[in-house]
Design a protein around this nucleic acid. Structure first.
Lengths: 156, 156
DNA sequence: TATTGTTATACTCTATAACTATA
DNA sequence: TATAGTTATAGAGTATAACAATA
């Protein structure tokens, strides 16, 4: 072995592991995301729409800019998503009380009902897949969901 | 409580947990996939392209139909991906030795080099995020990658 | 002048339906 | 007639640049 003596062997391996994990995780995530989108072709809302609705559900009404930041997309992308949700009556847009430039987006009653219904009964394909997993696998998935959520909070 | 007496309480809760986990996992996965795609804007290849290249790397040359099945996309989608990769010289297309309808797609030398280089050095953003995680979180992510990969193998 | 949201435009990813060539 | 791959077309999702209205 010809390692630079300033570099502990352990940290070298950890670093390599992290690169490998980053690569593996990225591929697994994009492939699973592809499947999940595909299995929702006949759902009322897409995963992009559901993601925005879920944020409004858990965090309450907010401006398009805040929702874009929270979902980590650019404002014009969120304008589109909000427009599509408003078109089908799942969100309402109201003027901001004190700033004429801003608007407030909130879930309609139908939007709230849809989010609760989705939480309770949708993702049928994935839930079916999960039914075949062992307890340890479910546990690691649950922990991974938390970790992935944290990763995105510290995103650049 | 008014549970049907055929249904064990435990399995009811597990079922609910699985639905909840399916919902949470789906949102986490699509959001992380969005980030990962965004952070590769200046990479040589997209994650869709890298996914196909990685499959060719690990499983060797195959027909477009086999690659589409392996990546779980429809054949016309794979035609496009292969076309884009051939345009930049990362894959080669050769006639099938015995069936004039089929072709064989394989990694070029540049394609092999790119996959190895990506594995070793890319996903920089994600690797940086992972560096801040604790060992237990890394472990659950590693296990989750395996589980997600398995999930897709048993896909409809 | 800076900020918020929208419009215009374009690119990637994916799908379905129709077509071509070969088996 | 069935199969493999491609072409044509469309729609979702996302981005950047330019614009309008308001602060």
């Amino acid at each position: 072995m010809n390692l630079p003596h300033e570099t502990p062997v352990l940290s070298l391996f950890v670093s390599h592991d992290e690169k490998q994990l980053a690569s593996d995780l990225a591929l697994a995530v994009v492939r699973l995301a592809r499947q999940l989108r595909g299995h929702r072709q006949h759902s009322a809302v897409s995963l992009t729409q559901l993601s925005a609705l879920s944020t409004l559900f858990s965090e309450g009404p907010m401006t398009p800019g805040a929702l874009a930041a929270r979902e980590r997309v650019q404002p014009p992308s969120m304008t589109r998503v909000i427009g599509s949700l408003a078109d089908v009556g799942l969100v309402d847009r109201m003027p901001h009380p004190s700033d004429g430039r801003q608007i407030i987006v909130s879930l309609s009653e139908a939007g709230k009902a849809l989010v609760q219904n989705e939480k309770d009964a949708r993702e049928a394909w994935l839930a079916a897949q999960l039914r075949n997993l062992r307890s340890a696998e479910l546990t690691s998935l649950r922990e991974a969901v938390d970790t992935m959520t944290e990763l995105m909070k510290t995103c650049d």
